[in-house]
């Protein structure tokens, strides 16, 4: 692997954005996540890696309570965002999700125009006072998602007409438009070709300056390329969590080593 430059990359800050302690997730009788502790640092890309079914996506979905939409899912333990417990009964998940945005595995733009896709979040959260302000948010978000140049002349055309990579960037723009503090990405490149993947990865690195990004990925190279912190999940347990460079070059757990060298997974 030539992509082990991650060692040289610094973590800019040490402010903890999210702290998860003793998190257990159950799907009915299945114990999907077992006692996981993770700290997500602000302005950092944190990657969750691990074999299929290891619970990394499940854990990601705990961070903005998307698991609430599944009837049988049950979450225990504490997840604090800026020191506030997001599973507190007083917390409205809708408000939480405005702060913790999400990008999904498959690009899922609404079957509306590109403009409406991006403007939807600001509209429902009342972020824009008038049309001009909304236009500005849309432009800013599309620029951040590196889609503005391609999309500026076709804002009124359906988002579903874009290519896969563009659609995923549109989804990122849409997530960014609501001005979140944390951006969760669930295998955002798994449906994309290598060129689109490279564009998204570049984008993720830029997004780091404003948000703390958590990315689930199947590709260890991708984790090594984009992240500063890496968490390795195996069978619902957090096996190892630390600096990306450290995990990939000098893992302390034999299971991590087996996984990154390709023996399990």
């Amino acid at each position: 692997m030539n992509d082990m430059r991650a060692v040289e990359r610094d973590v800019d800050t040490n402010d903890l954005k999210i702290t998860a302690r003793g998190v257990d997730v159950f799907y009915g009788d299945t114990h999907a996540i077992k006692d996981v502790d993770v700290d997500i640092v602000d302005n950092t890309v944190t990657a969750f890696i691990g074999p299929s079914g290891c619970g990394k996506s499940t854990f990601l979905r705990c961070l903005n309570r998307m698991n609430d939409t599944i009837d049988v899912a049950r979450v225990e333990g504490s997840i604090m965002l800026d020191g506030e417990d997001i599973y507190d009964p007083k917390v409205d998940p809708v408000q939480l999700r405005a702060k913790v945005g999400m990008v999904f595995q498959k690009p899922n733009p609404f079957p509306k125009s590109i403009y409406d896709n991006v403007a939807y979040g600001p509209r429902i959260h009342g972020l824009a006072k008038d049309k001009a302000a909304l236009d500005e948010i849309v432009e800013k978000s599309l620029r951040r998602a590196a889609l503005w140049d391609e999309a500026k002349d076709r804002l009124d055309q359906p988002g579903t007409g874009l290519s896969g990579g563009q659609q995923q960037r549109l989804c990122i723009a849409r997530a960014v438009a609501t001005n979140p503090e944390v951006l969760l990405m669930d295998e955002p490149c798994s449906a994309l070709d290598p060129i689109a993947t490279a564009q998204i990865e570049e984008l993720i690195d830029e997004l780091r300056s404003r948000y703390s990004v958590v990315i689930v990925t199947h590709s260890m190279q991708q984790a090594a390329r984009v992240s500063q912190k890496t968490a390795f999940f195996h069978l619902g347990e957090l096996v190892e969590f630390g600096e990306t460079g450290h995990i990939f070059t000098n893992p302390s757990d034999p299971r991590t080593e087996s996984y990154i060298t390709g023996r399990i997974g």
Binding site: T69, A98, G101, N108, F110, P111, Y120, I124, R174, A175
Partner: peptide, 21 residues
């Protein structure tokens, strides 16, 4: 497709907004 619902919910739309919008 459920992905439409997830997309709306992930943006912080309420259940009702995701259904009606």
């Amino acid at each position: 497709p459920p992905s439409i619902r997830s997309a709306a919910l992930g943006l912080g739309a309420s259940k009702m907004q995701s259904v009606f919008h």
